[in-house]
Write a protein that binds this DNA or RNA. Structure first.
Lengths: 215, 215
DNA sequence: CTGAATGGATAGCGGCACTCTCTACTATCC
DNA sequence: GGATAGTAGAGAGTGCCGCTATCCATTCAG
């Protein structure tokens, strides 16, 4: 198919597709003549993936490029690739880490049986966790760290479902894509469902009770 | 204190503070003379909250303004306020919803015992959920909806911890702030811990096994 | 044969979150 | 009392990002 059809089938404007081609988010089509190129289903699939990363994951174009690079790397174990993808989709914030927050993270790891001392700056994921706890402290919620354990408990159930979902995929490529899509879309879904759960639980537990007369 | 001290104690540059004042994210200080104003601890606290919303929550200035407006509204029940805050911190994406995704959401609600039919466009939260499932479908992951139930199961544990945390707060204002902070920082923490859980589970379950020889 | 579409490239645009600059003060230290 | 630093307020400017517009020569479809 040519770019016009690619545009129609994906819902992405032609100039935007050209932009993605230039930025290397989409491989060039096969040139059949100096100004005609062919695109296939793989291009369409990739284009939809890019839109998913941008729309739901909120990733920048640069991050998308990183994720795609991680996906396309052939010579790595699945486990390593999971790590690479995670790094790419977890952009570090510019927050200066509070040493106490770092300790909180290390204590959390220690509780999980991690023997060696963790360097939180080593990975974007641990950095993200430490940054979140840093900000929590700065707004007077140092006790927030106590939620880490119940969070992990709930997330174990969730992660198990995630892994089962990914394991259902047939090819290795599908596994990797499911990891990326599942992680990012999963984040959005978790966000939404958590809010729904809040409403439900708060209706039952808080109601309009405790704070009301005091105010 | 004057703006310089406010800047030092918050780590936010003076011009940025002035910008926030102009944008209405921060109430004006008390003028002691035409070009001298006084700021108190409440300003500092609010400023830190703004930075938390921006840094960890990734909210736009406009969204922060909405959240603050919801916080500052006096004449509402806690439950209503939770709803208002949730709407403000859940910016809807521009994705065109897939009717099938909407059905998925409605089926999910039905399974939770919601009798009346849900209008997903009514709330940003349900819209977000439907948008996520729409994108999942567009990249060939229609089966993703099957994860909703295990997600909810895990999130019940998490939401219980959240509510317990919020209930610990003393004043009504603290409850509201804890709701906001806990929701946004909680999102970030969940994201990070979920990734850690993935690594752990994948190391055990997937290892480097299934996909390798096939590729 | 003609009008629409294409590949390729460069320049421009709109939004956002600041940041700069300026004026007219005031507070403070020596 | 004079020098220096800080301040309120407001408009203009900046840098980045994700497109979007324009242009050209070519080529395909009817």
């Amino acid at each position: 198919m040519r770019v016009g059809e690619l545009s129609k089938r994906s819902g992405v404007a032609v100039p935007t597709i050209k932009y993605y081609l230039r930025e290397g988010l989409l491989p060039a089509g096969v040139l059949t003549s100096p100004n005609q190129a062919h695109y296939d289903e793989e291009h369409l699939r990739r284009l939809r993936l890019v839109r998913a990363l941008v729309d739901v994951g909120g990733l920048s174009i640069a991050s998308v490029r990183e994720v795609l690079a991680a996906i396309d790397t052939r010579d790595e174990s699945l486990h390593n690739k999971l790590g690479a993808v995670q790094e790419a989709i977890s952009q570090p914030s510019a927050v200066e880490l509070d040493p106490l927050a770092i300790e909180d993270v290390q204590a959390f790891f220690a509780r999980q049986g991690e023997t060696e001392c963790v360097d939180v700056t080593e990975s974007n994921v641990t950095h993200m966790l430490a940054a979140a706890l840093t900000v929590a402290r700065s707004v007077g919620h140092g006790q927030f760290r106590d939620l880490l354990d119940p969070y992990l408990e709930g997330l174990k159930i969730i992660a198990q479902a995630d892994v089962a979902y990914v394991a259902k995929q047939r090819s290795r490529d599908d596994v990797i894509e499911a990891m990326v899509v599942g992680t990012l879309i999963g984040d959005a879904v978790l966000k939404a469902v958590r809010r729904l759960a809040h409403v439900q639980v708060s209706r039952d537990v808080i109601g309009d009770g405790p704070g009301d007369p005091a105010s």
